[in-house]
């Protein structure tokens, strides 16, 4: 239990720092902005209660908003993902039973399940975020394109991080 808290606290700090100092300044081809911080919500332990998920989503969104000159948009999309997470876990990985050694990773749930799970939630998060940021209907397709390409980039980064950090453990 304590180990879980320490690991997740550590992950929270690392992801927030990476987001505000690296990925917020990152723009491939002028419009790809990955929001990798959402990985924190995706990787929380299975037995995390839903109310805690929502509060953690709120805090994470608030911290990111605070450092990126925006108010509310990251809170909104992160809380949305935190709310939808258990629903998708149920559909994508129904056989997974919560337990002390069970975590959401490629090693544990397999590549396909992991990709579907992260893919769907990252898309939801990015699309909400990008539309809230623009807040205008006139750029519907440009925003959609930016959101989709940025999501793909975020997903690739998440997959790379999985192989970097989890391949050594058995």
């Amino acid at each position: 239990m304590t180990r879980h808290i320490i690991i997740n606290l550590f992950r929270f700090i690392i992801l927030v720092l990476l987001q505000i100092f690296v990925f917020n300044h990152f723009q491939l081809m002028g419009f790809i902005n990955p929001y990798v911080y959402i990985l924190f919500i995706l990787l929380l332990p299975l037995e995390t209660p839903r109310w805690l998920l929502l509060f953690l989503g709120f805090i994470l969104g608030y911290v990111i908003d605070y450092f990126s000159h925006s108010i509310g948009i990251n809170i909104f999309s992160t809380v949305l993902v935190a709310y939808l997470r258990p629903v998708f876990i149920q559909y994508v990985i129904p056989k997974l039973e919560p337990g002390p050694d069970v975590s959401i990773s490629i090693k544990q749930i397999g590549f396909n399940s992991f990709l579907t799970y992260t893919g769907i939630l990252v898309f939801i998060h990015h699309i909400t975020l990008f539309y809230l940021e623009i807040f205008r209907i006139s750029y519907f397709f440009t925003t959609l394109k930016n959101a989709i390409l940025s999501s793909i980039f975020t997903i690739i980064l998440i997959l790379i991080s999985q192989y970097l950090f989890y391949s050594r453990k058995k």
Partner: peptide
Amino acid sequence: IFFLFLFLEIIAIVLMTKNRTFTGSVILN
């Protein structure tokens, strides 16, 4: 859980609309 979700999202929306009207004061944060 659903109402907690709704409550948190409403806070986010209030913050967003505030940001659009009084840009300066909120950004001061």
